[in-house]
């Protein structure tokens, strides 16, 4: 079997991916601590700030998360072909057929693999949902970080409701990200084993290998 090398992911997309992934890990760990500050102490008068420290790291990671979202937003429109949103949404007959085919492949109804340089459409739909979730999560986060700011208050009240509702949603969406991360890693490994296209290494070096025997 012959393979052709294809450049799939720009440096900016790879930077987005890893800053997004790492910030989510940090946000979940610190977020759980803020949710349940389990280190407890009866020592008073000492200057240690466990909750403040966790919140600080959480806020910094939140800004990294925000930066990553903004970079991805730019790439959705101005990125290379694989990075633009119309490449991986079911908006063309080719993409719609790919969506159904991928579903069949994942359900073991077919063994036939139809290679794509970019995302398969099923993944693409999930990524867009994730992107929207990230936007809501970001809004809820800033709503809580700047509760007294008129601007964040306006958007927060409109989309999320009260501070407490925003907090609740922020917590629930965290679970979406945890589930997404588990599913994402499982499917990526599954694909890497099944199709041998160098899928995992492509997010480090940007290059995928597509079989030239298989159009």
């Amino acid at each position: 079997m012959r393979y052709e090398q294809h450049y799939a992911w720009s440096i900016l997309l790879r930077l987005f991916h890893w800053s997004f992934a790492l910030s989510i890990v940090v946000l979940v760990v610190t977020g759980f601590y803020i949710h349940f500050p389990w280190t407890n102490t009866l020592i008073e008068g000492e200057t240690s700030f466990p909750v403040a420290t966790m919140r600080y790291i959480h806020f910094i990671a939140g800004f990294v998360f925000t930066g990553a979202i903004l970079a991805r937003l730019y790439l959705l429109v101005f990125g290379n072909k694989q990075e633009r949103f119309w490449d991986f949404l079911p908006v063309t007959p080719r993409n719609i057929s790919n969506m159904f085919h991928t579903a069949k492949l994942y359900l073991y109804f077919t063994e036939e693999h139809r290679p794509r340089i970019g995302h398969n459409v099923l993944a693409g739909i999930i990524y867009i949902i994730t992107f929207i979730m990230a936007l809501i999560q970001m809004l809820a986060g800033f709503y809580m970080l700047y509760p007294e700011s008129a601007a964040w208050q306006k958007w927060g009240l409109f989309f999320l409701g009260s501070q407490q509702q925003g907090r609740h949603l922020h917590f629930l969406i965290m679970w979406y990200f945890i589930i997404f991360a588990v599913a994402h890693i499982y499917i990526v490994i599954w694909n890497d084993i099944k199709t041998r296209e160098g899928l995992i290494s492509s997010i480090f070096n940007g290059t995928k290998y597509i079989s030239s025997d298989n159009p």
Binding site: A52, T53, F59, G67, Y74
Partner: peptide
């Protein structure tokens, strides 16, 4: 922490803008 996160946040968003 909020003041610190603000200044870090401005830098992070600056780096994002530069990368874009």
């Amino acid at each position: 922490i909020v003041t610190g996160a603000n200044s870090a946040g401005i830098k992070i968003l600056g780096v994002t803008a530069a990368a874009v």
